[in-house]
């Protein structure tokens, strides 16, 4: 079971990203890429094709839960990034309507659920995960990341668009992910 976190600046450029593999027991065993490919696929590249064809019907699969092709556990980096990007429209819709910072399950794509957290300064934390029942853990995780982000922001050399490279920040986000996710 994996989690993907992206921090996005107010202009939607990524300033930090993290992939976290949960040590907690997985709800479903994740299959290797090849076993999820349709029978006609012969090359590893076909996995990407499957993912992309799923992407073109993103609105469809949004309304039909469980619909669409299950692809390689979604482990492909570019697919993950694409899903995160695709969810931004939904996040912006919801954040205009609701005044909560933590937006749970704003978007779904195949087995992925997208949760988000919007800070008052319009920085978005986007988390891709495949757990439906860990709301409390995700909320606590976002809360920790928020505190760490505020501390980063207080550094006078940091601007809203600076990529976060601090090893201390990274270590703390990982520690919180380990605890909560």
């Amino acid at each position: 079971m994996s989690h993907h976190l992206f921090l996005l600046s107010p202009s939607d450029t990524p300033i930090y990203s993290l992939t976290h593999y949960s040590s907690k027991p997985a709800q479903s065993t994740s299959y290797p890429l090849a076993s999820n490919l349709p029978t006609w696929s012969t090359s590893a590249f076909a996995g990407t094709l499957t993912a992309l064809s799923g992407a073109s019907s993103v609105t469809q699969s949004h309304h039909v839960p469980g619909g669409g092709v299950k692809m390689g556990g979604g482990q492909d980096r570019h697919v993950v990034q694409m899903i995160a990007n695709a969810s931004l429209d939904n996040i912006e819709d919801v954040m205009r309507r609701e005044n909560a910072m933590y937006l749970k399950s704003v978007d779904k794509f195949n087995e992925w659920t997208v949760s988000a957290f919007v800070t008052p300064g319009n920085v978005k934390f986007v988390l891709l995960h495949d757990q439906a029942k860990n709301d409390e853990g995700i909320r606590a995780f976002f809360h920790d990341v928020w505190e760490l982000y505020v501390k980063t922001m207080l550094n006078p050399f940091h601007t809203a668009h600076t990529v976060i490279r601090s090893a201390a920040f990274d270590a703390r986000v990982r520690a919180s992910a380990k605890k909560n996710l």
Partner: peptide
């Protein structure tokens, strides 16, 4: 903005923004 809101809202279960 970030620090002020954090100080006001971080103790709350569901922190809010102004919309």
């Amino acid at each position: 903005l970030e620090l002020m809101t954090w100080r006001a809202e971080s103790s709350s279960k569901a922190p809010k923004r102004e919309i």
